[in-house]
Design a protein around this nucleic acid. Structure first.
Length: 711
DNA sequence: TTAGGGTTAG
């Protein structure tokens, strides 16, 4: 029993802290105080009143206050000790929790269990195990707690042994083991337990539905949900509906999801944060982003997860600008973004190729100390690389303290697309050295690197390794990469032979790789065969028509060109016009060939004409074969000089400061004549020009290009 | 809210 002055001191302290004039008097506080006054009146203190006061402090995160009151009690009971221990553990204060646990004169099984759980929450499995071994009388909760501890630390086999050793198992124990199997990808074992268990509750069903969905068996997850509904024995909770909706999103199953949505409206569940978020993702995955937005707007309590779901949804629907608007709105209303928010937002920056905005988002992540998160780091590497800044991507990658397979793939693919083949292979060696096992994406990156640098032997070596690795399924993309390598190395017959010997039927992507090579090597004979395959497989794919038509145009076979154009017209196939753009201060400046619509056109054309003169002085002769129109030679030169990529470069030149890098994006492949001209332009202006075309990045520096004139 | 089991974004 504490002395009265000490007691009054605490009341006074509480009174100051809870000053009604500052905070208002909540109902809980009123209750707490009336119990206090009761104690004073009776001049004695029941433990119950101490409990309510301490628990009030605990509820309001005032752990120090709670501890001060706790220390005033001469002999706190087991309940109070346990409450303090649990709270310290939840606040990651394991030392304080253990100190109290050691001080306890008497312990019951709940206090042992709480301490054990506390150790697990604070990441200490060793002490948790020791405690488990020392518990005088374990109950089913003790067993389940340590079982979950093993699972939490990825020790599935130990959990399995423990589960079978348990003297008695209740439904919660079965549920834990099922969850353990699901989260370790052992779906068959999970299903077996689910079948075997003596009785299932709603948690068992929800665990199994979620497990199947996460394993990629979303259809089976929905069937199980239906089975549960049909049984009529289980009432689903918000969690169950949330899992079912996620399964609908992953399939995606629009009709079933919409039905479920209607049902949830009737049940009044639509304002549940988890359900709303699942609905946002569901509609976004079903390409109905307007519905996602509607659900988002109808929600009053929007949390960071819900905001992130909407940002992700816009990104998934290629509405990158909208995603960035949502991100800015979120910041405006004071929601603090987390790792996932940055990952999704950076994805949209990559989609927009908006380096300036990507850098701003990066700065915000740094401010919040989230730039070292592995997901954010990966997104940053991808963003810098896709926005044309591979050097910064490499710097960031090297600084990453934690890396996973996605990190390695991102940097290897990035280097490959920028033509930094040696760098890509070096990263691969480093990855192998660090015992990270490559996956299918890694091989795509490696083969692309080899292709862009014409390293046939290396490519064959990697392709062989890929085929030997039984953990990887060789996909059509890998075959297409190999065809690309053969093609770029001028080995068109070998490429055709390779396609014919493939164990799976080639798709149009594979034949298009061959056709592109034919375009580079001006081989009309093979091109016609390859194009025919694409025409048969995908009659409306415009790429094959364009490639073949360009090839005929380069050979001045104008009759063939008009025949192909006639076929395109007949089939209603429209060629995408060549378009180049520069993203600056959040705006995209687009240019078409010969375009004069930009407000700065006059300046741009002046600059290009000036450079045209300089180019001629350096001995540049336009390669007329790239002007793919049946017009007079002089006219061809004019068309070439004003190709969209050159106008975009001209815009970069008139709007940026001396010495800075110019970054241009193009929807089609950069034309060969422009390629020669841009190399010289880079030399004349003494600046680096980076052009991302439909297949790769070109770094033009001092008269050379990183692609080695081959792309 | 003195102890164990299932849910949302990436």
């Amino acid at each position: 029993m504490p002395s009265f002055p000490a007691f009054f001191r605490n009341i006074l302290l509480s009174w100051i802290v809870f000053s009604p004039s500052r905070f208002g008097l909540s109902s809980t506080l009123k209750k707490s105080f009336s119990s206090f006054m009761g104690i004073v009146n009776y001049a004695g203190m029941g433990t119950l009143s101490w409990k309510s006061m301490i628990s009030y402090h605990i509820q309001n995160e005032r752990l120090e206050e709670a501890r001060r009151l706790f220390d005033e009690i001469t002999s706190p009971d087991v309940y109070l000790y346990t409450m303090m221990i649990a709270r310290y553990s939840r606040s990651q204060r394991l030392d304080d929790a253990l100190e109290l646990f050691c001080k306890m004169p008497v312990r019951d099984v709940a206090s042992w269990n709480s301490m054990m759980k506390g150790c697990l929450d604070c990441g200490n499995l060793v002490i948790a195990r020791k405690l488990f071994d020392e518990i005088p009388e374990r109950n089913v909760i003790s067993w389940t707690t340590i079982l979950n501890g093993f699972l939490q630390f990825g020790k599935i086999e130990m959990a399995e042994v423990l589960f079978h050793k348990m003297p008695w198992r209740d439904t919660a124990a079965w549920n834990s083991m099922i969850f353990g199997y699901c989260s370790n990808g052992r779906i068959e074992d999970a299903l077996k337990l689910f079948e075997e268990m003596p009785s299932r509750n709603v948690i068992s069903w929800t665990t199994m539905i979620g497990g199947l969905d996460q394993y990629g068996m979303s259809g089976e997850a929905l069937s199980l949900f239906q089975e549960m509904q049909d049984s009529g024995l289980i009432i689903p909770t918000a969690s169950t509906y949330s899992s079912a909706l996620t399964a609908c999103a992953n399939i995606p199953a629009l009709d079933q999801g919409v039905q479920l949505h209607a049902h949830l409206v009737k049940l009044g569940y639509v304002f549940d944060a988890f359900i709303s978020t699942s609905l946002i993702t569901f509609y976004a995955n079903c390409k109905q982003i307007e519905n996602s937005h509607k659900i988002f707007q109808e929600n009053l309590h929007m949390n960071v997860v819900m905001w992130t779901a909407l940002i992700t949804g816009y990104g998934l629907n290629s509405k990158y600008e909208e995603a960035l608007v949502v991100f800015n709105d979120m910041i405006k209303v004071g929601i603090v973004p987390n790792q996932s928010t940055f990952t999704s937002t950076l994805y949209s920056c990559s989609g927009l190729e908006a380096l300036d905005r990507g850098k701003m988002i990066h700065a915000q992540a740094v401010k919040l100390g989230l730039d070292f998160d592995v997901f954010v780091g990966n997104s940053l590497v991808v963003m810098y690389s896709k926005c044309g800044n591979i050097d910064d991507a490499v710097v960031l990658f090297n600084k990453m303290s934690k890396r996973n397979i996605v990190s390695w793939n991102s940097i290897i693919v990035g280097c490959a697309q920028h033509g930094y083949a040696i760098q890509a292979l070096k990263f691969f060696d480093q990855m192998v050295h660090e015992e990270i096992h490559p996956d299918e994406i890694t091989y795509i990156g490696l083969l692309t690197a080899c292709s862009h640098s014409r390293m046939l032997d290396k490519a064959m070596h990697f392709f062989e390794k890929l085929n030997q690795d039984k953990s990887i399924v060789v996909k059509l993309e890998h075959y297409a990469c190999m065809v690309d390598v053969f093609g770029r190395c001028g080995k068109l017959e070998e490429a055709e032979e390779f396609i014919r010997n493939m164990p799976v039927k080639a798709n149009s992507m594979v034949w298009l790789a061959l056709l592109s090579a034919c375009r580079v090597h001006a081989n009309l004979e093979v091109a016609k065969r390859a194009a025919q395959y694409v025409f048969d497989l995908e009659p409306h794919n415009s790429a094959a028509y364009i490639l073949l038509s360009n090839l005929c145009a380069s050979a001045s076979r104008w009759n063939d060109v008009s025949q192909i154009r006639g076929m395109m017209k007949q089939k209603g196939i429209v060629k995408n016009p060549g378009c180049s753009w520069v993203t600056m201060k959040g705006s995209r400046h687009e240019f078409l060939c010969g375009d004069r619509s930009h407000p700065l056109s006059e300046k741009i054309y002046q600059k290009m004409d000036f450079l045209g003169g300089k180019l001629k002085e350096l001995g540049y002769v336009p390669d007329r074969s790239f002007a793919l129109h049946d017009v007079e030679d002089e006219q061809k030169e004019v068309i070439l000089s004003y190709h969209s990529e050159r106008l975009a470069i001209g815009f970069g030149l008139v709007t940026t400061v001396e010495g800075s890098t110019i970054r241009v994006m193009k929807n089609l492949r950069v034309c060969g004549d422009c390629h020669s001209a841009i190399k010289l332009i880079a030399k004349i202006i003494g600046r680096e020009i980076i052009v991302r075309d439909s297949s790769r990045f070109h770094h033009f520096r001092n008269g050379n290009c990183s692609c080695g004139d081959y792309w």
